[in-house]
């Protein structure tokens, strides 16, 4: 279980790099870049959290279905 979870350790890195690079292409000032990157980081984390919850709930419900 823990070994299978290891690939998710890369996700924060991906989140950080994507949000920073994307924000840096939209702004020139560092304070604006960091604020925008933080906002995008929160949005992406929220999206991934929703997907994870949906998949977790599906993994509980589907085995219990009668077919």
């Amino acid at each position: 279980m823990l070994f299978a979870m290891a690939i998710y350790l890369h996700l924060p890195l991906m989140l950080l790099v994507i949000s920073l690079v994307y924000s840096a292409t939209r702004h020139e000032q560092w304070d604006e870049i960091l604020i925008e990157a933080f906002r995008w980081g929160i949005r992406m984390f929220g999206f991934m959290l929703i997907v994870a919850v949906v998949l977790f709930v599906a993994s509980l419900i589907i085995p219990a279905l009668p077919f």
Binding site: I18, Y22, A24, T25, R26, H27, Q29, E32
Partner: peptide, 23 residues
């Protein structure tokens, strides 16, 4: 993803940031 993000970086080098505010 790294390759696709570099397209945005190329655009930034070409025309500057999408949103430009005066310091």
């Amino acid at each position: 993803v790294a390759g696709m993000l570099n397209i945005l970086v190329m655009y930034d080098a070409y025309a500057g940031p999408v949103i430009f505010t005066v310091p």
